[in-house]
Design a protein around this nucleic acid. Sequence first.
DNA 1: TGGCTTACTGATACACCGTATCTATTAACG
DNA 2: CGTTAATAGATACGGTGTATCAGTAAGCCA
Lengths: 242, 242
Amino acid sequence: MAEAKGPVWARNDREPRRRTLSRESIVYAAIALADRDGLDAVSIRSVASWLDVRPMSLYGHVSSKDDLLDLMFDQIAGQNVLGDQLPQHWRTALEAIARRTRDQGLAHPWTIELMTDRIQLGPNTLRVLDEWMRAVAPLSVSTEAAWTIVTAVNDYTVGYVIRVVAQRRAVPSDARAAGEWTATVNSYLTERADSGDHPHIAPLLRHGFATQPDSFEAGLSWILDSIEQSHAGPTSAGAAGR
Amino acid sequence: MAEAKGPVWARNDREPRRRTLSRESIVYAAIALADRDGLDAVSIRSVASWLDVRPMSLYGHVSSKDDLLDLMFDQIAGQNVLGDQLPQHWRTALEAIARRTRDQGLAHPWTIELMTDRIQLGPNTLRVLDEWMRAVAPLSVSTEAAWTIVTAVNDYTVGYVIRVVAQRRAVPSDARAAGEWTATVNSYLTERADSGDHPHIAPLLRHGFATQPDSFEAGLSWILDSIEQSHAGPTSAGAAGR
DNA sequence: TGGCTTACTGATACACCGTATCTATTAACG
DNA sequence: CGTTAATAGATACGGTGTATCAGTAAGCCA
C-alpha cells in the first residue's frame, strides 16, 4: 500500500485479507495513544508495539502516517453526529452542534492539531458538515448565507477550543514541574504587571488568566443573537425566510 | 545555555558576548525559513546551515528548539501592535486588531501551529493582549466582561484563520500534484454528493467549498453587533457604561 | 602586553522518527 | 492441495533534537 494517490478518504483501497491486524484496530490504538500521551506519542513504531506487531506491518493497512492521522480524525468526527437528536429549532440545533464540537475538541485535543495541518473531508467529517447545514435549513436562506452562518459558529468554536487547550498544555503534566512552571510564570507575569508596560491587562496578569470564568456560551449567544436578528423573527422557528 | 528553567520569556538570560551570531539573527533566519517552507523546514540543522554555522553553535543563544519557536512567535506578534494607530472607538479598534490578527495569521501560517502547542505569553504577545483590552476600555465594563469580549473576537478570528490556512494547505504546492489532487478530491466529493448521504451540503460538494465568498467580516460584525447592543448605545463611543 | 574568559568549531554519539526494501513464513481460498 | 497474498522480521537510509568533549580564536581587563 505504498503507492498512495491523494487523501485517504478520496481513495478506494481494496480491503486486505487481514488476519490479526485491521485498519480499525490500528486507528483505535493510535487514538488511545493520542488521548493518553498526545499526538507526538503516536508514531508508527509506538502504535505497532502497542499492538504487539512489527512497525512495517502497519503499512499493510494504512499507506502512511498522514493517512493514519486522517483516519483518526474522521473516527472522532463520527462520534460528533447527533442524527435524530438534532433539535429542530435552528438555534438550539446550532448550539447543540457547537457544544458537541467543543466537548470533543477538549476531549481529544490532538484533533485541532490535525485541523491546522490540512482540511479534513473524510466521510464522517462530511456527515458533521451536513448536520451543520441541516441545522440552519429551517432558516431557508441561500446556501451561501447558510455557509456563512455555519462557518462563523464553527470558527468561533474552534478558536475557543484552541485557546483553552493551549492554556492547559502550557503547564507541564508532571506535578512537580507544574508547580515550578507556575511559580516561574507567575513571577514573570507580576514583573510584567509592575513594569507598567501593559496597564490594561495588569489585573489579568496578577490574578492569572486561568481564573477568568469560562465564556464560551457568551460568545456563542452573541453570534446566534445576531443571526436571529438578521434572518428570523426573535421567537420564530425560521419558517419566515428572507 | 542547556539548563532551561521555564519558558523563554519568563527567564532572564544574560546575553552572550556574541561575535557573529546573535539571538536575533537566529530568530530571523528561522522565521524566513518558516515563511518560505513551513514550520517543518525549521530545524536546528537547517537554521544553522542557513546561517553558515554549525548546528551546536545555536545552543549558545537559544536553549532549545521550543525556545526558538516561542521567540519566533513573539517576534511576529510584535509586528501586530498598532500603538498610536489604534482607533479610539472601541468597535473600530476591535475591527482593526482582528483584521491585523487575521492578516498576520495568513501571512505566517506557522504561527497558528504554535498557538495550539502552548499558550504564548512573550512580551510582544502581552503587548498585543494589552491592546485588545485597551480597545474595549472605552466601554468601561469590568475586567471580566472586557475579557469575555476580547476572547470572543479573538477566538473567532483564530478559528477563521485556521480554516482558511487548512484549506490552502490541503492542496499541494507543486502545480502538477495540485492538479492531480484537485481531480481526485473533486471526483470524491461529487461521488459523495451523488450518494445522497449528505443532502444538505450537496451544492457545496459539487461547486467546491473554496468557491464560497470570504465571510470573515460577516461573522466579525455579528459578534460586534451583539456586543454593541448589550454594552453601549448603538452609536455611542461607549462613555455610557453599565 | 599577557592572560583569562567566552564564543564558536568540529566531531561524535544517542535515541528517536517515517518508510523503503528484501526474504521467509504462514494462513486462507479456489 | 497448491497458489496467493498477508504478515513477520531484519536491515537500512536519511532525517530529527541535543548531549558531550576537546580544541581554537577572539574580546576584555589588569
